[in-house]
């Protein structure tokens, strides 16, 4: 069990971020594609040329050479060695550490069994399905007995059923392992994270415990990555004042004058096209974008977002004035206390 800290600067890719994981915990790096998550992981593993990465393991500077770092990386593309059998792929780490051929084979077969691929050791990577290849890559990384495990979008590119199987497998295997997992999916964060860091444009926008960041986000960006909306305002007489005269009654919260917010799931936010009179607290806004999400469309405004049935979104386009209905009585929480980012 190893605690990890890393300060990564890769100017060529616009990345400047710091992450920290306590021993045996899982940090989820949550961010959209292109926010620099993969670069952070690769730099921590030591394989980004020109990166300035200060990595410590249990407070000691990590060795420069990747092979001495013992930081495992599960890359998005699996990167299985195509010229070796599945077993030799998994045995590669143990063999590199000096284990004998027979012992390494044994270790590899044990790992293959642990990831549910008993008996597939003689296959070539090319003959595996996407889910099987991901499992082999996971087994290969863990068989090398890394002190810290980095997983780059471990469930991306898998169909939903396989992805949830692999998610369950990873959740089990990472118990007690210091790990950093990148994802753009709030579900992964909820399923795996002890702590969450939200990445935006190469740096960490917000970090904290999973409960804090996912259920009480302090920035609209973190809220969106966590699949929620954040309504920001100032406490005034038992309500959250978003703008002059626009108030959302809340069920409780910090004292008057404090910068605060309430958060809701877009599915709980109502949408109206004409000025409504009753029901939730209505906030006037304009459509900024429409995001298809299966059988619903997430209508994004400047301040809020709401999920509506596909047919209800048919007449909407960017600029259409709309009213978002925020449920009354949500718990408000202060946005100023604590650092937004480390």
């Amino acid at each position: 069990m190893t605690a990890l800290t890393a300060r990564v600067r890769v100017p060529a890719r616009g990345v400047d971020a710091a992450v920290e994981v306590s021993s045996g915990a899982t940090l989820v790096l949550l961010g959209p594609n292109g926010s620099g998550k993969s670069t952070v992981l690769e730099a921590v593993a030591g394989i980004v040329p020109g990166a300035d990465a200060r990595v410590t393991l249990d407070g000691t500077d990590a060795p420069r050479a990747p092979r001495d770092r013992r930081i495992g990386l599960l890359s998005q593309d699996d990167a299985l060695f195509p010229t070796m059998s599945v077993r030799d792929n998994v045995a590669f780490g143990p063999r590199s550490r000096g284990l004998g051929r027979a012992a390494a084979r044994e270790a590899a077969d044990a790992w293959l069994a642990r990831v549910g691929l008993d008996g597939l050791g003689d296959r070539r990577p090319g003959a595996l399905s996407g889910g099987q290849a991901r499992r082999v890559a996971i087994a290969r990384a863990l068989a090398a007995e890394p002190r810290v495990m980095l997983l780059d979008e471990p469930f991306a590119g898998l169909d939903v059923v396989v992805a949830s199987e692999v998610r369950g497998l990873v959740a089990g295997l990472l118990t007690g392992v210091t790990a950093v997992v990148t994802t753009h999916d709030a579900l992964d964060a909820h399923a795996l994270a002890d702590t969450v860091a939200v990445m935006e444009a190469g740096s960490v926008a917000e970090s904290g415990t999973a409960a804090e960041v996912l259920t009480r986000p302090r920035t609209a960006f973190a809220a969106r990555m966590g699949g929620r909306v954040l309504v920001e305002g100032t406490m005034r007489g038992g309500a959250l004042e978003i703008a002059a005269g626009v108030r959302v009654p809340v069920g409780g919260g910090p004292g008057a004058g404090v910068r605060a917010g309430v958060t809701a799931h877009p599915g709980d936010v109502a949408l109206a096209l004409a000025a409504p009179v009753s029901g939730p607290a209505w906030v006037v806004d304009a459509v900024r974008g429409l995001e298809p999400r299966g059988d619903v469309v997430r209508v994004h405004g400047a301040l809020l977002a709401a999920d509506v049935p596909v047919e209800a979104a048919a007449g909407l386009e960017a600029g259409t004035p709309v009213w978002f209905g925020v449920p009354r009585g949500l718990e408000a929480y202060a946005l100023t206390s604590g650092a937004a980012a480390r």
Binding site: E42, R67, D68, F92, S96, R97, A144
Partner: peptide
């Protein structure tokens, strides 16, 4: 690069 992270010389 991945082989390096697995400890290979």
């Amino acid at each position: 690069a991945i082989a390096g992270t697995l400890g290979a010389s």
